[in-house]
């Protein structure tokens, strides 16, 4: 019975995990800023954790959530066990399970990705339209769509308050598209406390409407047409195009496209001291123990009959 159970369990694991682990997904996304308004640029700023900021592009012509952008750009992430990918606790394996995060009020804090990270050490989520200032997201990563041609930012907030949360230190300006006005609409705040509330589709420019050159600016004076589905919500107002602008790109920190970044799975194997042989030994031990159980049970049955 038990042997059958173990065999069944092994079969489930075998069939389910047969696909290989992929490497840092150079296959997904492209290093650096998006060259055109198609897709979204994802900025990951490690801030006080140390490490070079990474900028990658998710060149998608279709809509997607913040999670799609982050994963599509090739970043390797981990969600907390409790909430899954709805709450990101690690990006590119930072802060890793073996890294002590100097969070205030927590001695020797390590991010174990089991429950929601503390307010003093977590990945803050930002977004920005092209040439716009960064905005701290009021929405969860799965609950809002990225701005086509815009930016998604991840910035590690260590011992900061809601006021001093550090925005990504990369100006949200695509090279070659400087000097345009910021045309991102202000996103409405969530109307309920339901964490599953989904943002209503925004009247952004249809993705892929322009091929590289322009930003597809809609006439700034005209309010965008209200989407049929969001009749209950107030109309998203276009920003006053005069005041908000992105930071000067010259002040951005140095960044890479993550070309040299090591595969997170490899890093994990090294950090954890995992041995490629240990799972084999574990499997062999399970088989051996099962065989020994069966043998002992048979011996005892025979002894009882004798």
């Amino acid at each position: 019975m038990r042997m059958r159970f173990i065999a069944a369990a092994a079969a489930v694991v075998l069939t389910a995990v047969a696909s290989p682990a992929y490497a840092i997904d150079q296959s997904k996304g492209k290093p650096g800023f998006c060259p055109s308004a198609t897709g979204v640029t994802v900025v990951v700023d490690f801030q006080d954790l140390g490490g070079t900021t990474i900028v990658r592009c998710f060149p998608s012509a279709s809509r997607g959530t913040g999670l799609d952008a982050l994963k599509g750009a090739g970043f390797q992430i981990a969600g907390v066990q409790r909430w899954g990918e709805g709450f990101i606790c690690r990006v590119e394996n930072r802060p890793s399970a073996v890294e002590i995060v100097p969070a205030q009020g927590k001695q020797n804090y390590r991010e174990l990705c089991i429950d929601t990270p503390p307010g003093s050490a977590y990945w803050s989520y930002w977004h920005a339209g092209n040439n716009c200032p960064w905005v701290y997201s009021q929405w969860g990563i799965k609950n809002r769509d990225f701005i086509p041609g815009g930016f998604e930012g991840w910035s590690f907030s260590l011992n900061k308050t809601a006021k001093t949360n550090p925005q990504p230190r990369i100006a949200a300006v695509r090279p070659g598209a400087e000097g345009r006005t910021c045309n991102a609409t202000e996103e409405p705040k969530p109307t309920t406390n339901d964490p599953n509330e989904q943002q209503q589709p925004q009247p952004n420019t249809p993705p892929g409407a322009d091929n590289g050159g322009g930003d597809g600016d809609p006439p700034a004076a005209e309010p965008p047409p209200a989407p049929a589905t969001s009749a209950a919500l107030p109309l998203p107002r276009p920003r006053n195009s005069a005041s908000p602008t992105a930071a000067n790109p010259a002040l951005s920190v140095a960044f890479t496209g993550g070309e040299q970044a090591e595969d997170v799975n490899k890093v994990l194997r090294r950090q954890s001291g995992a041995s490629p042989y240990a799972p084999w030994v574990a499997g062999a031990a399970v088989v051996l123990l099962a065989a020994a159980s069966w043998w002992i049970a048979r011996q005892r049955r025979r002894a009882r009959k004798a």
């Binding site: 389910a16 995990v17 696909s19 290989p20 682990a21 992929y22 390797q76 992430i77 981990a78 969600g79 066990q81 990918e85 174990l112 990705c113 089991i114 997170v264 799975n265 994990l268 194997r269 954890s272 001291g273 995992a274 041995s275 240990a278 799972p279 574990a282």
Partner: peptide
């Protein structure tokens, strides 16, 4: 707590 973000064989150390 093996990661489930990318499917892979769960790692194990000694």
């Amino acid at each position: 707590n093996p990661s489930l973000i990318t499917l892979s064989w769960p790692l194990l150390s000694w």
